[in-house]
Design a protein around this nucleic acid. Structure first.
Lengths: 249, 249
DNA sequence: CGACGCTTTGAAGGCCCTCAAATCAGGTGG
DNA sequence: CCACCTGATTTGAGGGCCTTCAAAGCGTCG
């Protein structure tokens, strides 16, 4: 039933030299709240940022750290994890280039409420709080945009809450797979590959279930022909099938 | 086991005349992102707002409405409900005077993502989007504060997600009762009364469980002496007891 | 005081978790 | 290039927490 034995997920090496001024400006202009700024303004904004590389699995920051930096993902993928006292992890989000993180805590509590790990090798730009607040004061429209984006994130969190209380695991997994395909999908043959290492545990941690249950359900999806998958990768074969599951069959 | 037969929750009638200029300014100054403004500035800000009264149960806005207003609660209590397609309701939050709502959608999607109902008789001030955005542009520090508050709300939503995936219903209910007592508690005798109509269904909708389960568990709490409660009201008798439940006994 | 609606209680059943163990993919070192 | 090793995935069995459906108790309010 599996389409391949070896993972089709691409894993490009990131070279340090890629973070040239032009690349930095380009990535900054990808960030929703900087999108409308002129190149000149971006150059000023850019001076507040510094860039760092991380290798797969590295911790970018930990849940208990003091929140000092706002971060923007330039290359690669980052995962945000909430660790619970019981030792169960919650995968809050998988980020793609252009997304920012760590801001939450910057303005709210003094500590990060989640940990960030390099999901693949990646490059991250950081800015400290005073510099960022000063940007917000100089550019009120950046602040207004940021408010809108945070509002959307809150909306998404509420949807997650809704799904957790009203949907069963099967629906939640169908939902999360479709969402990931939307975000990280790359069309290969007649499939939409989620171009990212993605284990059963990752899916389980995103949907609040156990690895075993995630495995059982994804296997069922495979048998139904909705997806094909192997070790750490998933591709969607029938968007319609998953949508049907999501909506209650 | 019940302390009283009749509800001890206070239910003051709200008179229209209470919304005088002074009251309006006082309530505006309660709002976290307006707190630091001078009286003069507040007076300017106030001109953008208009006040409305609602009776218990009235809909202030509905989930499917176009999001046009930011609202601030002046008197009474408001509940935010997310309706799901299956007909199950989720009680997102209970608001007290000084809290704002409806903003989410104002900057994010075009529609409200939840409905707001008058939980008790209440008075609400509203401002439309252009007027509010103009305030944000004129007062960058208001915008920065708003960002911080939304960050905290997002943090709280994440905590809810964590609780839904890692805690059982008993813990979640203990948690929600303590939180409500913190927010709406008024000390009566040796108890801390949650001074708000609060049904078993409300508790169930806040914790994502069924009315029956909420009832069973709250009865157990009563038998343990942690709470006393009756029809639509709850008082905490042993904060320690509930805390112990919350942390896993 | 009578009806409505909130609350309580019981019973049956399902979903999902946990523990355990087998299977398999991919990388490593000889 | 092959055997081995590590870690991911699959599968099974048993059990617990909660849901759902029903029906009986009781406050409150008119």
């Amino acid at each position: 039933m599996k389409a391949r034995k070896t993972s089709p997920v691409s894993a490009p090496r990131i070279e340090t030299h890629q973070c040239s001024l032009d690349v930095r400006l380009e990535k900054l202009s990808l960030v929703p709240f900087f999108q409308h700024l002129s190149r000149k303004t971006l150059e000023t904004v850019n001076t507040g940022f510094s860039a760092h590389h991380f290798e797969q699995g590295d911790a970018i920051y930990q849940q208990w750290d003091r929140a000092v930096y706002l971060r923007i993902l330039v290359f690669g993928a980052v995962r945000l994890i909430h660790h619970t006292e019981e030792g169960k992890d919650i995968l809050l989000d998988l980020l793609q280039p252009g997304e920012y993180f760590g801001t939450l805590s910057l303005f709210g509590a003094g500590q990060y409420q989640e940990s960030a790990y390099a999901h693949t090798d990646c490059c991250v730009m950081t800015i400290d709080e005073p510099a960022f607040v000063s940007i917000l004061h100089d550019h009120a429209d950046v602040a207004v945009k940021l408010i809108g984006i945070n509002a959307k994130r809150l909306g998404r969190a509420r949807n997650t809450i809704r799904d957790l209380t009203t949907s069963n695991v099967e629906r939640r997994i169908a939902n999360v797979l479709l969402t990931l395909a939307e975000k990280f999908g790359s069309v290969k043959m007649d499939e939409s590959l989620i171009d990212l290492p993605l284990s059963r545990k990752d899916v389980a941690d995103m949907t609040g279930t156990s690895t075993e249950t995630a495995s059982r359900i994804m296997r069922r999806f495979q048998q139904e022909g909705y997806i094909s998958s192997g070790r750490q990768w998933v591709a969607i074969r029938s968007r319609e099938g998953l949508t049907a599951v999501m909506e209650g069959e």
